[in-house]
Nucleic acid binder design. Structure first.
Lengths: 167, 167
DNA sequence: TATTGTTATACTCTATAACTATA
DNA sequence: TATAGTTATAGAGTATAACAATA
């Protein structure tokens, strides 16, 4: 609830150094690295806030989404794909399973593996969550035209998956 | 130090479902939200690894960079700009000050404020660090042409700063 | 009274190692 | 022996509240 009063008055003219906007001209503010971090921060903050209505976060939403993808991912695959440790996946799947959104199923070809599939309730939850996330995303990307959003997504996709190959 | 052995052998052909690439086709993998998070993850992981040689991280590098910007930011401004809590800035500035890279200086116009300025050593450190970060960034963006990198940066900039206005 | 910086604290996230069951 | 999942734990990151100095 911080109300940063605008200072576009006489005092501002006397002290134009006050105001964060002046930092926009810093070198840092032009590094892709920094901008990506900040853009993600803007986006996921908003998404987390909105997803709270469904008792989800971006993390659990991601797992639920992949569970609902029809691709029958194993926990190991979720970990690799989401850049998370397998032990973190355990906790995320636990929470989703406890609320009846997903099920663990032993892979018939390798009984060590747990394949994660959604329940009917899980699919409904995902539908709601996906709408919320899309909405939050649109809001975060409000400054861009539809074409620019596609462009951004396409560029990010190439960067995000360029490193996927085993190191 | 996890050496994920490549599996491009007969076993891989027998189990084509193994392999994370199939998850590229999921809905999640096409959400800008997710892609931005992942792209940032790729970039900052690499940057953090490389900056370790200077005993810096992306966070402390950001503070050092702004300190060296000539814009004479206060701690409060650093907190707002970096989306960090003022108490976190304290710790970051403490560490940089302890190693002689930056100094706190009372703002003559408001003695409550600490203006963060670099020492000569801090400027040298920043020069080295900036080269490392730029290098890491280029590596992370390796899949993109120079023009595409500019495009990405420009788009990210608009998203990253769209939300800057007081909430 | 409000704000900057500080400290202390708790909570979340992340990383690591050890254990089990399967292979 | 190697891998998938699990558990426990420690460390880093993040958020909150209270306090001192200054405005």
């Amino acid at each position: 609830m911080t109300q940063t009063a605008r200072q576009d008055n006489a005092a501002a003219a006397a002290a134009p150094e006050t105001g964060i906007e002046r930092l926009y001209s810093s070198e840092l503010a032009n590094e892709t690295e920094f901008l990506a971090a900040r853009a993600r921060s803007v986006g996921s903050r908003r998404a987390n806030e909105d997803l709270a209505a469904l008792d989800l976060k971006v993390r659990s939403y991601s797992v639920l989404s992949l569970a609902c993808s029809g691709l029958k991912p194993s926990q190991r695959e979720l970990a690799e794909f989401l850049f998370l440790d397998p032990s973190q996946i355990v906790a995320l799947v636990d929470a989703l399973e406890k609320r009846g959104a997903v099920k663990r199923k032993a892979d018939p070809r390798d009984r060590r593996s747990n394949i994660i599939t959604p329940t009917a309730a899980g699919k409904r939850l995902y539908a709601e969550a996906a709408a919320i996330v899309q909405n939050a995303g649109n809001s975060a990307l409000g400054a861009l035209s539809p074409a620019e959003r596609d462009q951004l997504r396409s560029l990010l996709r190439r960067v995000a998956f360029a490193d996927q190959q085993p190191a």
